[in-house]
Amino acid sequence: MTLVVSDLCVDHGAIRAISGVCFEVGKGQLAAVIGANGAGKTTLLRTLSGLKSTSSGTAFWNGHDLLHAKPEQLVRLGISHVSEGKSVIPELTVEENLNLGALWRSNGAEAPATLIQVLATFPRLAERRSQLADTLSGGERQMLAIGRALMSKPELLLLDEPSLGLAPLVIAQIFQSIRDLTSAMGLTVVLVEQNAMSALKIADIGIVLNLGSVVVSDTAKNLIENPQVRAAYLGY
């Protein structure tokens, strides 16, 4: 049960956004991908979830090829992607947003049980169940986006900048839930973050991207102590 990415190259038109990226994430691990704006973090995730096509390289999840599948097929292989910027649908209610994640599961009988689980994980969502997602705060939207992904019963969760635009206190809350979920549900998580310190604190391993290439990858603990990483990304 591993995610194996090797020699991945992705182009935006004439510009190479990702070049020769290799890494591995084991089952149940939380991997933080950190790096500055424009390092290729989002492109990497969009490629893994089938939204963006690759130029060369391979990526496998449990032996399934990720690079030639559509997002809706990858969801069926247990891969859920929460895209950047609180990916919820504002015109739908909280409950509808959540149910959306379970629509594809043909044995819909399980969905209500999953819904109860997700609402127990994020009690704030339970309170706002029948409200439009449009009325939620930024933090609640992020919870809803993650909750929707969980409704698909994923094994691999791809999270794109869950801290974007949130207050520090809310970020701490969200990151704690991500850590708890990973452990409780045995999820494998790839977390893309500009907020390097928060991400590394909850991660098992860390991958540092710069200008589309892996600069260093190591255990999160070692990265936090690595003087170069500290200077460049952690700010002290």
């Binding site: 939204l51 809706e72 992607h81 895209s83 990916s87 959306l100 994640g101």
Partner: peptide, 24 residues
């Protein structure tokens, strides 16, 4: 209905619908 939810989601936000597994 579930079909109705899929129809609305695909109309409002096709990318999010696809990521949620809807065959848009």
């Amino acid at each position: 209905t579930n079909l109705g939810l899929a129809l609305r989601a695909s109309a409002y936000a096709p990318e999010i619908a696809r990521l949620a597994g809807v065959r848009v």
